[in-house]
Design a protein around this nucleic acid. Structure first.
Lengths: 226, 226
DNA sequence: GGTAAGCTTCGGTTAGCATCGAACTATGAA
DNA sequence: TTCATAGTTCGATGCTAACCGAAGCTTACC
């Protein structure tokens, strides 16, 4: 009767508070256990387990067994992108969750989006890389220029393992706080890891906030001028 | 307790079959009456009315009264983008609706996405415009170059009314069938209208398919070479 | 082997919400 | 005024799915 992909199924999967909580938690990029996700969503483990299996068969989640733990993560970058896009729309329409605490400014400034840097600093990095022609928009998304490759190699990014992955190297992801794009893809992930390694920033426990040190922030702003 | 925008609310709004059907119908870009949408969703008008008011207060829909008719349409381009993004994910994950009929190839070739051209031809147009530097990727999305402006004016696009709108002129929208981008925004809308005016193509009744005439297709391909 | 932790499965309960009939409002036509 | 069409509101019904207790399964650690 009807043509096209089934939006309703996806929507209902995302549109249940407990599941939405879990998905938002997983947007932090960390793989979490069923118990952790249950706590995050405020339901018992049995209920969480049921939700998790639904989301897994629905293609939103990926499961990795490790000993007696089962770690859940978003299935791929696309799931994260759609979630962030929905966040953007929700924010624009004023559908905010209960109370957007004092963390909010920090969250808008620098946060983890699945596995890469988002927020003001994420957008700034993207802008800077585009302005200096290190990244070039391509049909499908984003391409790395030769200059860009050299630049990142100078920044101690090792491309060899990245290129073996099935994930795209560069991808743009729409920011819900800014309504502008930031860099996703395996390069985005690698860069964020590099920031951690350089001690420019570290993750805030139980939050998506990325806390830059004053020194780290300075270095970041110098590395990615506008 | 929790920070950030509320995904669950949006998801539940979209994740109900009747509502999803209506939204998909509205992706055609046409404003439809409550009765038409009820038929589209396969529910009675009372039920439809209830759904419509929910979606309107939820910010997904916009209502325009006209005599004793009430026309509903998607609230803005962003809603359309999120819907297409979800379609992309659903298609990728294999969640297709009941049976994807013989219309499908035509739908992938050229269809309406809210108010602009999508599908293979839509993507080709985007590629062509980018390759010839008529469009340039900018921070937020897409920018029109001076060359581009001249080019479109030669194509009888009148920019004056377009620039008075609050909508962005150019915007990229991810294609669910192709997983590549095509041109949205008010320019995208204007171009599609122009194709209709030139009799290159016309809408197929009760469908999102855009049917190009052989002459129109030829002209289109020449106008937007790769 | 025994025990504990992590997670899933099963069954029964409950709550929310979509659904529709019927009554009501509003606009237009005769 | 009267009738017809478009749409909303109200109330009752019924279905679905989330929820949790209890039991079962698997893996680890002593």
């Amino acid at each position: 009767m009807k043509e096209g992909p089934d939006i309703a199924f996806l929507g209902s999967l995302i549109g249940e508070p407990a599941r939405a909580n879990m998905l938002t938690a997983l947007l932090s990029g960390k793989a979490l256990t069923a118990s952790e996700l249950a706590a995050e969503a405020g339901v018992t483990v049995q209920t969480a387990s049921s939700h998790l299996s639904k989301m897994e068969t629905g293609g939103l989640l990926r499961q990795r067994k490790q000993g007696r733990h089962r770690y859940f993560a978003l299935a791929d970058d696309d799931v994260g992108s759609v979630l962030e896009a929905m966040m953007g729309l929700a924010a624009k329409k004023g559908h905010l969750r209960t109370r957007t605490g004092p963390k909010d400014p920090a969250l808008r400034y620098a946060r983890v989006c699945y596995n890469h840097l988002a927020g003001d600093l994420g957008v700034r990095m993207m802008d800077s890389l585009l302005a200096r022609d290190f990244l070039m928009p391509e049909n499908e998304g984003l391409g790395l220029t030769d200059d860009g490759r050299a630049y990142f190699e100078g920044f101690s990014i090792d491309f060899e393992p990245l290129e073996k992955l099935r994930r795209p190297l560069c991808k743009s992801c729409l920011d819900w706080s800014n309504r502008r794009s930031h860099l996703a893809g395996s390069l985005g992930t690698a860069l964020l890891t590099r920031f951690y390694d350089l001690n420019w920033a570290k993750r805030v426990e139980n939050s998506r906030i990325v806390a830059f040190s004053t020194r780290g922030e300075k270095a970041f702003l110098e590395t990615f001028p506008i």
